[in-house]
Amino acid sequence: MISHLEPDGPKPRSLSPARIALYVFLALSAAFFLLPVYVMVATSLKPMAEIRDGNLFAWPQAPTLAAWAKAWGTACTGRVCEGMSPGMVNSFKIAIPGTLFPVILGALNGYALSFWRFRGANWVFTALLVSTFVPIQVFIFPLVRMMTAAGLFGSLPGIILIHTGFTLPLTTLLFRNFYAAVPEEMFSAARVDGGGFWSIFAFVMVPISTPIVIVAVILQFTGAWNDYLFGMIFAGRENQPMTVLLTSIVTSQYGEKEYNVNMAATLLSAAVPLAVYFASGRWFVRGISDGALKG
């Protein structure tokens, strides 16, 4: 029998101070990221009286959905009092095509730029690179003029077009970087087998693109959903997305601010992107690790 002091077998595990410090840091960081969300939820469930007198961090004594109902259906944006409800549909109407078009076109572009080095491809690529950097403010006025001239200003197709155009450079870059890491032999083999531009894309490239498609879809969808600037200028009265309605509700109240309604409205507008992250965050992270951001 070996004595207890004699090291033998696996080293006994103990919780070192460094390990404890690590978990403390993680817990504090989690608190920093969670607390604002908690406060939002708690506030949205309180009546105004409790907000005025109670503590910000206290859980509501009698949680009520009254503020949520008002935020959804009757809160006023200027003269209209329909709450956030019209915005939800509008946001979907903008964000879904605003995701599909740039992702599909971006994949095609990235593929064309990586494998079909047609004359001028480098020039196009550089132009795309530059345009991701250009501040949107540079284009706003000429865009307004062009959209008006084309009869698209303030319309749904108009705002979708704007989203597609301005995010296309980014999705193209994402896909190009991804395809740049695909072995050239794979493409050459498909060419030898008689594949053309479209068939190689559909049968060779699309099936291997899952990680980057996930990253691009999540980025695009949350980006389009969260956009404020384009929605405010180009969407028009009929198609205002939730972010625009939210700002109007929050800034257009007179007299005492209804913080509970504001918080409920905020949560309503954040619900969809949050759900997207909770549902697919794991794949998003994997997609980024799998090379979406290499090169």
């Binding site: 989690a30 406060v39 939210l246 918080m263 992107p273």
Partner: peptide, 16 residues
């Protein structure tokens, strides 16, 4: 948790 707020818009962040 750490990634959650990245899904929000600046409008939401600002209000909170």
């Amino acid at each position: 948790i750490f990634l959650m707020s990245a899904s929000l818009s600046f409008v939401v962040t600002g209000i909170v």
